[in-house]
Design a protein around this nucleic acid. Structure first.
Length: 497
RNA sequence: GGCCCCAUCGUCUAGAGGCCUAGGACGCGGCCCUCUCAAGGCCGAAACGGGGAUUCGAAUUCCCCUGGGGCCA
């Protein structure tokens, strides 16, 4: 039988990295098995669900490379794929359970239940539903209705039955005692279904063979199995993945900073890096390799190898991995890196809109000489902002160190003259001019290179000096040297302070 | 409160009784390379939560405790 799985997000926010991780593992497993992956939208919380969030979730999943075979946008044979369009199904199924007396109307008021709970706590015994409405006679029910009470629907758990076994693909066998389950509510008094119930109706209706979800749903599983039993349906296999944690080891949430996939996208993280990083949380391939393609992941992924303990989302490692993939992109599709870097520059206000092919070509030249330093597109700002602004800020500590000598202004002037004569203005000619000037002054190359770098870039880090001079162009280089010589003069005069 | 799950370096993890002097990766520190930084190469610090039991032998099996997480309320 073909494997069928689903990912069922609620459109109450953007796609969360925890959700994306879950979706990715489910998708990997499904592709490995050659099965079908269904996308279902759990939008029963109407007050918080929006169409915009739904569209955003679909978009982010696609961006990650996670595609589905059936879903709200493309339809499929077992639709509809939004819970709000399935309310009639839930109502019908609730009726079936009621007719079989597997479920019964419960007229208890919230206040009454709360009182029961308080009493149990006061007497130091575990709270159980009193069973007050379990066996109401039809006459008694009519009385309640007449009194204006609206019933919830409770599922009847026969505590005489044996324990419920859950054979989880990740966690192994877990046993639950029926008497601990208690009669649980499957439909609110307003007629809307509860999560557990709607889930069962949908998963069965969509012929899902393998349910994958977060470990927080493990306790729901025996209740769901009981419902499958009551309907006379075959139970699906289940796999509960561990939770994603924040650095404080609590379940990852908004408090932990960026949790939405699109926030990472906006920062220039590559989808292939994100997905490779996801793979390594909770699962490792046999040979311990860390960088591999999606096709390799699909080939190697085995659900039984998924770990049981929660994993902390470590942005540092993600960023390292992004660097690995950015380098690969640089080799294979450099124009893609150019786009990302241009985006980072625009975000920083260092590039105007779309400056056309000339601007693009310039960014491409910058990327060509410093791309290997990037782990994130925004790293261009720390290594090469001076390519995109003339009012370069000078690193004060570096100025104190490099410009304190009385002979520095003269040295910068000599370099300016030498560079002015370089023609054509290319790396070879530039390097020769700089080294010859150093020799003529009786200095080692590095003694002129460091001040020169500072003069032109304002900083002590960056791409190769001769390369950056070529890209900057003669005009700007000469202008900056003039300005830097003045700064060096002031610095030397003030004793380097 | 009841029930359930989990537990190896700071983090992701390898480890399914002797191969463990507990391995790899990120991060961190040092050295090399070098015009700087990054990258790269080499080296280093860094973990089996605690206690029992089983066994000739336990990170690995069992029990208890502790800690963390979750579900129901």
């Amino acid at each position: 039988m073909a494997v069928r799985t689903r990912y069922a997000p609620s459109p109450t926010g953007y796609l969360h990295v925890g959700g994306a991780w879950m979706a990715f593992f489910t998708w990997l497993f499904t592709r490995h098995e050659g099965g079908q992956f269904v996308l279902r939208i759990e939008d029963t919380d109407r007050s918080r669900s929006t169409e915009a969030f739904e569209a955003a979730i679909l978009e982010d999943l696609r961006w990650l490379g996670i595609g589905w075979d059936e879903g709200p946008d493309i339809g499929g044979p077992v639709g509809p794929y939004r819970q709000t369009e399935r309310t009639e199904l839930y109502r019908q199924h609730a009726e079936i359970l009621t007719a079989r007396s597997a479920a019964y109307p419960c007229y208890c008021l919230p206040e009454e239940l709360e009182a029961d709970r308080q009493r149990a706590a006061a007497e130091h015994r575990p709270y159980r539903y009193s069973g007050r409405c379990r066996d109401l006679t039809p006459a008694r029910r009519a009385e309640m209705e007449a009194a204006g009470r609206r019933a919830t629907l409770r599922f009847r758990v026969r505590s005489s039955r044996g324990p419920i076994m859950v054979d989880d693909l990740v966690l192994g066998r877990v046993e639950f005692a029926a008497e601990d389950l208690d009669d649980f509510i499957i439909q609110r008094s307003d007629g809307t279904p509860l999560y557990n119930f709607a889930n069962v109706v949908d998963d069965h209706g969509m012929r899902i063979t393998h349910i994958t979800r977060g470990a927080e749903h493990l306790s729901n599983t025996p209740r769901q199995f009981l419902m499958y039993e009551a309907f006379g349906w075959d139970q699906p296999r289940v796999a509960h993945f561990p939770s994603l944690l924040g650095v404080d080891r609590k379940k990852l949430s908004k408090r932990h900073g960026d949790t939405a996939v699109r926030e990472y996208k906006a920062q220039g993280y590559l989808p292939e890096a994100l997905v490779n990083f996801f793979a390594l949380m909770g699962w490792y391939p046999e040979d311990g390799r860390e960088i591999f393609s999606v096709d390799e992941m699909i080939a190697r992924f085995r659900i039984a190898d998924v770990g049981k303990s929660g994993a902390v989302f470590d942005v540092q490692k993600l960023t390292w991995m992004n660097g690995v993939y950015l380098q690969e992109a640089l080799r294979r599709t450099p124009e893609r890196v150019v786009d990302l870097v241009a985006g980072a520059l625009r975000d920083a206000g260092l590039l105007d809109g779309d400056g056309g092919p000339a601007q693009r070509a310039y960014v491409a030249r910058v990327v060509a000489i410093m791309g290997e330093r990037l782990r994130l597109p925004k790293d261009v700002l720390t290594y090469g902002d001076f390519f995109f602004r003339d009012d370069i800020p000078y690193d004060p500590a570096a100025v104190r160190k490099q410009f304190r000598g009385r002979e520095t202004p003269a040295m910068l002037e000599r370099l300016r003259e030498a560079l002015a004569r370089v023609e054509p203005f290319d790396v070879a000619g530039i390097e020769k001019a700089v080294r010859d000037t150093a020799a003529a002054l009786g200095l080692e190359s590095k003694d002129v290179i460091h001040p020169l770098r500072l003069a032109l870039t304002g900083k002590t880090v960056g791409p190769g000096l001769f390369e950056l001079i070529e890209v900057l162009g003669k005009g700007r280089v000469l202008a900056r040297l003039t300005r830097a010589a003045r700064l060096a003069e002031e610095t030397a005069a003030s004793g380097g302070a």
